[in-house]
């Protein structure tokens, strides 16, 4: 039986381990520093712990770091990493270098339950949640670790559907004992799970991005099944009722589909829906997914759409598409083949 991983444990969990193993309680902080501030890969390297402490730790635990299995590089410099999980599944992470910042796109689940029509990840169904350690391992185990400036939870899975592990990973990333990253450099994306949104906004200072894609509920319902349970109107109502503070940013992701959600009618409804909110809209080009009867709006249409929203006072940008040639762009991550067939009831 494999040992329990230390990587991904919060400070409180490490203190509990120290108590359990009857090792000095201050060891918890030392272990955290080795795990999250120094690039060690084994307990033996934690040299400021006594040999006896290391021995006791190593009896039951391991660092739990998992090297990536494969990397693909795009013509634009984006790199897509394939990571095995401890359950024998696979997830992908995308490293996106830019001139002024370097962003890592993290996955939180193997596959996804949400079934959005336009998303490649949704096509593979759901195979499981990642642990906080497996989420953070995607950062810790890439060679660009020291170069990463921004993290976005926009990879495989719905982050707020794996809330407990998401929040643990955010604590470790932003805590002084952990990676000590500014929460202003971390964005968590959601399709609008209201339970998770409230919890996330209450306990974290990181930015939130909401996948919007259509301001009309009936239209959004066909794109995103979640609309049948948590409607966009409810999501917006929740967001408007919460004090976001001055630093936190709410953004809305809007994939543009030709002749579907790129009309003046959509501009007007977005303005009505989001008017008065301090937010931004990111327009995203749709990357074709096999079997999906949607096409991307062209560049001219996207620019017109952006200008129309900006004129109405909604700060809107067009997100640059990156890594499409290696299937690393928005909505294209998938490990369907390596994940294998799941238990089926149909």
């Amino acid at each position: 039986m494999s040992k329990e991983p230390l990587f991904g444990k919060t400070y409180d969990e490490l203190r509990a381990i120290a108590t359990l193993l009857d090792i000095p309680s201050f060891s918890a902080r030392q272990i955290a520093e080795w795990l999250y501030k120094k690039n060690i890969s084994s307990i033996e390297e934690m040299t400021n712990l006594s040999k006896e402490t290391r021995r006791r730790l190593a009896e039951k635990y391991e660092t739990g770091l998992i090297p990536y299995k494969k990397v693909m590089e795009s013509a634009d410099g984006t790199r897509k990493y394939l990571f095995p999980t401890r359950q024998g599944k696979f997830v992908e992470a995308a490293y996106i270098p830019e001139s002024r910042r370097n962003t890592l796109c993290l996955s939180t689940q193997v596959g996804c339950k949400m079934g959005c029509l336009f998303c490649m990840t949704g096509k593979q169904g759901f195979q499981g949640n990642l642990t906080a350690g497996e989420i953070l391992n995607q950062l810790r185990s890439i060679p660009e670790l020291e170069n990463v400036t921004n993290l976005v939870y926009m990879g495989m899975g719905e982050p707020l559907d794996n809330l407990q592990e998401l929040m643990k990973s955010l604590e470790i990333l932003t805590s002084e004992y952990g990676f000590a990253m500014s929460p202003r450099r971390i964005t968590v994306s959601t399709i609008g799970l209201i339970p998770g949104i409230r919890e996330f906004l209450k306990k974290s200072n990181c930015h939130l991005a909401v996948s919007l894609h259509s301001p009309f509920e009936e239209e959004r319902r066909h794109l995103m099944p979640v609309e049948s349970v948590y409607s966009l109107a409810q999501v917006i109502e929740e967001l408007k009722s919460i004090d976001m503070g001055k630093q936190r940013r709410i953004s809305f992701e809007y994939i543009m589909f030709r002749d579907m959600n790129d009309t003046p009618r959509h501009v007007r409804e977005l303005v009505r829906l989001l008017g008065g909110m301090r937010c931004r809209i990111n327009l995203i080009r749709f990357h074709p997914v096999p079997g999906v009867p949607l096409k991307s709006s062209d560049s001219v249409k996207m620019e017109q759409f952006r200008e129309a929203l900006n004129k109405k006072g909604l700060f809107t940008t067009i997100r640059q598409s990156r890594g499409e040639d290696i299937y690393a762009a928005c909505g294209m991550l998938s490990t369907k083949t390596p994940a294998g067939e799941t238990d089926r009831d149909f």
């Binding site: 079934g115 949704g122 066909h222 099944p225 049948s228 009867p293």
Partner: peptide, 28 residues
């Protein structure tokens, strides 16, 4: 389950059902 809904939706679309005529609810 998500796997079923996504696979059935793909089949329906392939067989000519407009996606605007497909309504889904997924366990989550």
């Amino acid at each position: 389950r998500a796997e079923m809904v996504v696979e059935v939706r793909d089949i329906l679309i392939r067989k000519g059902i407009p996606f605007k005529n497909i309504y889904s609810e997924i366990y989550f």
